[in-house]
Simulated assay, not measured.
Amino acid sequence: MNILELVQHKSDNTCAEQLRQLARRINDDHVIQHGLVVDGKSLSLALREHEKLFMEVCRNCSAVLCCRMAPLQKAKVVRLLKTSPEKPITLAIGDGANDVSMIQEAHVGIGNGPFSELFT
C-alpha cells in the first residue's frame, strides 16, 4: 500500500497544492492501493474550499486514517465518505469516548476501551 499524507498544513494554498499533488500521484502510480493520513488542521483547510478535491483523493484510497482531530471532524469525514455517490461501506475504530460520534456515524463501528459500552 502506498501511504499518502496530508498533515501539518498551515495555509489554504499549501494544503490545496498538496491535495493536487496527491491526486496526480494516485493517477500516476501503478500501485493498486493507497492509504491517506490526514490531521485535523489540514482537514479544516481542505474542507474549507477544496472539499471536492479532498473527496476525490479519499475515494481513491482504500483507507483514510484521521489523527489529531476533534471528535466532530472524525464523524464529518465518515459522513462525507458514506454519503458520496459511490456509497462505500464505512468502518470506524476508536478507543475512547471522543470517538463515539465517529463510530456511530459509520456503517460498522468498533470501540475498545473504558467507554466501549457507549458504542452500542
Rank of each mutant, 00 (worst) to 15 (best):
R25M: 11
L91Q: 10
M55S: 02
N112S: 13
D39E: 00
L91G: 03
Q8Y: 09
C67K: 02
V108G: 05
A16S: 13
I3L: 12
G40I: 00
M69F: 01
I32S: 12
H50W: 01
A63M: 15
V38P: 01
L6Q: 14
D12N: 15
S84E: 04
S62A: 10
A106Q: 07
Q8E: 10
N13V: 09
L22F: 14
D12G: 05
I89R: 12
N60T: 04
H107T: 07
R68F: 09
M69C: 10
D29V: 11
G111N: 10
H107G: 14
A75R: 00
C15T: 06
M55G: 01
V77T: 01
V31D: 12
P85M: 06
V100F: 13
A70T: 06
D39M: 03
N27P: 01
T14R: 09
A75N: 00
L53E: 07
S11A: 09
D99Y: 13
L19M: 11
S101H: 10
K74M: 03
K10H: 08
E117P: 02
C66H: 01
K52I: 02
A46W: 00
K76L: 12
F119R: 03
N60Q: 09
T120N: 14
N112A: 15
C58N: 07
V37S: 03
H34D: 02
S11D: 15
F54T: 03
K52T: 07
I3M: 10
D39T: 00
L47K: 02
A63H: 15
A75G: 07
V78C: 05
R24Q: 15
A70K: 12
K82Q: 11
N112P: 04
L19W: 10
V31I: 10
R59P: 02
H30E: 12
L19E: 05
H9C: 02
V64H: 10
A75S: 14
I3W: 11
Q33A: 15
L6G: 08
S62V: 08
N60Y: 05
Q33M: 11
E17H: 13
V78M: 02
E51Y: 00
Q18F: 02
Q21H: 15
I93H: 01
E105M: 14
L47P: 00
H107C: 14
E5C: 09
I93M: 15
I26F: 08
E17L: 14
V37N: 05
A92F: 14
S44D: 12
L80C: 03
T83N: 04
L72H: 12
P114H: 11
K41G: 06
S101V: 09
V57N: 09
H30C: 09
G35H: 09
Q21N: 14
C15Q: 07
V37C: 14
S84P: 03
G94D: 04
C58S: 03
A46Y: 00
T120V: 10
K41R: 08
H9V: 00
I32K: 10
Q21P: 07
H9A: 03
C61F: 10
K52H: 07
I110S: 08
R68G: 05
N2C: 04
N2S: 08
A92H: 07
D95R: 06
M102Q: 12
S62G: 09
L6A: 13
A63P: 04
L36D: 06
Q73L: 10
Q21R: 15
L91T: 13
C58D: 09
E51I: 02
H30W: 05
I26M: 12
L65W: 13
N60I: 01
R68S: 12
R25Q: 15
V38H: 03
